[in-house]
Design a protein around this nucleic acid. Structure first.
Length: 547
RNA sequence: GCUCUCGUAGCUCAAAUGGAUAGAGCAACAGACUUCUAAUCUGUAGGUUAUAGGUUCGAGUCCUAUCGAGAGCGCCA
């Protein structure tokens, strides 16, 4: 809590006096009647100075106006109760106070979709997690750029070109639907037909050498595909600062390889370059025919970004099966002495169907994202058939986002549309409903709610529960920020919404005969809207105005 | 074969660096609506955190073994 930062600083200083290198952690209280707890002292129960520390801690906490009440137990657990009357007015300054002092420049790399293939369910998580991390880091004041980083180079493209050559298909006239049908066929041939395999390898090599007319064909595929990807993303509410791809760094690779070889960082091995970094398996830098790999372009991309967008940190939001690739990438960056920036693989689990099997269509293909989107719209229409198209769109995107972010990103999860569109439970529908309800309440009151002053002596229990929940925002926000885990905020949003609904349902607010209680509740509903909207935005969800 | 990840309530999932009595949702059961949007709320029940050891003031979390599940493992991305 930003209001407690002085307290934490003072407690930390105190620990230093006793040569204890420990930074105070404020946790949400697990016991009743308190808001936060500090568990750091427990570890030092046997420290000879513990009694002195305890008494100086008491003195410091005693003098903190934001703490209404506290205790330090026999085992040295510290329990704190917050002074709500001082806390609530501070909400206005929350967004400014939470900003970091030294903003970083962060690049989010989505390890984007491949061109020639439609967006499918496998892309859902990097899009959702990425968008949320973008918002979360911006909220902290960081300078963030997101790069879709298209897979627009390499074997998949070569396979498509090879297939169209073999079958006399004019790429100038091909539509996206045709392209999406071509790739699976080409891919199948590539793995089953040695002759086709050889030809495609050759196409890939020539493409690497930027030979015409292959380059022209590649441009065709890319432009058709990018247009389709942009349309799909716009429907799902995603956009990108950078539309870079693997192809953009091709011209940097020959020099990169040459220099690495001269510095004795890589060696020839049967025509291929491998890294001299000691590892098992060895790290392959190029193929034996000289053409490039995923790792080659990712390395060159680092150099490219250093030139174009000086950055402090790159976060790769890519599924966890690619863990080894990123280990190799990060080890190589260090070993090749490319730079001292921070590199991080934010990994996530796979999305399966409700039975736990890979998400497929009836024909056995990976399910398209647009198909999932349409099914979600239909489900929502079952709940309410009288809404406008924009509202359906907004709610469908809420469902696709919220149900994805509610689970810890590291675990594989089951996408169960029936469950995720449920009107009760931890769903996007539920949190939007609470928001719409609160908005309507304030609208119906015809009162200038913003300027109501709370009367603290008349705060009811259920009102207080909601206020106490506001206290927790920064804790969950911090969890989400430092661990790159949006699910803390998604879960928090449910908790907020649930407590609001409890307050709302308990007694009729607008017809309350006690005017003070009524105004209190309206003001708290107003605060609820503030928090709910803020958290939704951090998750990449647009608040609904009606539903 | 090697490497890594995981195992928490009937189901789906939480529990930051080890902290006090392991929490939610769904489903089940019992209640509350001529509504400020019941698309809601209230309550009950549900656990030897896979198993067996160990480390320590304290273990779902760390270590070891076993059982079970999944993923990855130079010329795909």
């Amino acid at each position: 809590m930003y209001q407690l930062s002085n307290l934490i600083t003072n407690l930390n200083k105190e620990l230093k006096k006793y040569n204890i290198n420990e930074s105070i952690d404020l946790k949400i209280s697990t016991i009743q009647n308190y808001d936060f707890q500090i568990n750091n002292l427990v570890k030092f129960q046997k420290n000879k100075d513990i009694k002195k520390i305890k008494s100086s801690f008491s003195e410091i906490i005693e003098n903190e106006p934001f703490i209404k009440h506290y205790e330090i137990t026999d085992k040295y657990f510290i329990n704190l109760l917050i002074n709500i009357e001082l806390f609530l007015p501070g909400i206005e300054n929350l967004k400014d106070s939470i900003k970091v002092k030294k903003p970083k420049k962060i690049i989010l790399d989505y390890g984007g979709p491949n061109i020639g293939k439609p967006l499918h369910v496998g892309h859902l998580r990097s899009l959702n997690i990425g968008r949320s991390l973008y918002q979360i880091n911006k909220f902290a004041g960081h300078n963030v750029l997101n790069d879709i980083h298209l897979g627009d180079w390499g074997m998949p493209i070569a396979q498509i070109i090879c297939y169209t050559d073999e079958n006399n298909i004019d790429l100038g006239k091909v539509k996206i639907d045709d392209l999406e049908k071509i790739y699976p066929k080409a891919s199948k041939l590539y793995s089953e037909d040695p002759d086709f395999n050889l030809k495609a390898q050759n196409v890939n090599k020539q493409l690497n050498e930027k030979k015409e007319p292959l380059l022209e064909k590649w441009k065709n595929i890319k432009s058709i595909s990018v247009q389709s990807i942009k349309e799909a993303l716009s429907l799902l509410g995603h956009d990108f600062d950078l539309w870079m791809g693997e192809s953009d760094v091709n011209n940097l690779i020959p020099t990169m390889i040459k220099q690495l070889y001269e510095k004795n960082k890589i060696s020839m091995d049967g025509g291929a370059y491998i890294s001299n970094f000691q590892s098992d398996p060895k790290i392959l830098i190029t193929k034996s025919d000289g053409s490039y790999l995923y790792l080659t372009t990712d390395l060159a991309t680092v150099l490219d970004r250093q030139k174009k967008n000086k950055f402090d940190k790159t976060i790769y939001i890519v599924d966890k099966r690619q863990k080894l690739h990123f280990e190799q990438l990060f080890n190589s960056i260090k070993f090749f002495q490319f730079g001292n920036e921070e590199f991080l693989h934010v990994e996530f689990g796979t999305v399966n169907d409700s039975k736990g099997n890979p998400f497929k269509t009836r024909d056995g293909d990976t399910k398209k994202l647009s198909e999932l989107y349409n099914e979600t719209i239909l489900k929502i229409k079952e709940i309410n058939e009288d809404l406008d198209e924009d509202s359906y769109k907004l709610l469908a995107n809420t469902v696709l986002t919220y149900s994805d972010l509610i689970t810890n990103r590291k675990t594989d999860y089951k996408f169960d549309l029936d469950k995720f569109t449920n009107i009760s439970g931890k769903t996007g529908i539920y949190v939007q409903y609470a928001f719409v309800r609160a908005n309507k309440l304030i609208e119906n009151s015809n009162i200038d709610v913003e300027n109501i002053n709370l009367v603290f002596s008349d705060i009811r229990d259920l009102d207080n529960n909601l206020i106490k929940c506001f206290l927790k925002f920064e804790y969950y926000y911090f969890q989400a920020l430092v661990n790159n885990e949006p699910h803390h905020l998604a879960d928090y949003l449910y908790e907020l919404s649930n407590l609001f609904n409890s307050m709302y349902q308990d007694e009729n607010i607008l017809e309350n005969t006690n005017e003070i209680v009524k105004l209190n509740k309206l003001k708290i509903a107003y605060y609820f809207l503030f928090y709910s909207k803020m958290v939704m935005e951090l998750l990449g969800i647009q608040p609904a105005q009606k539903m």
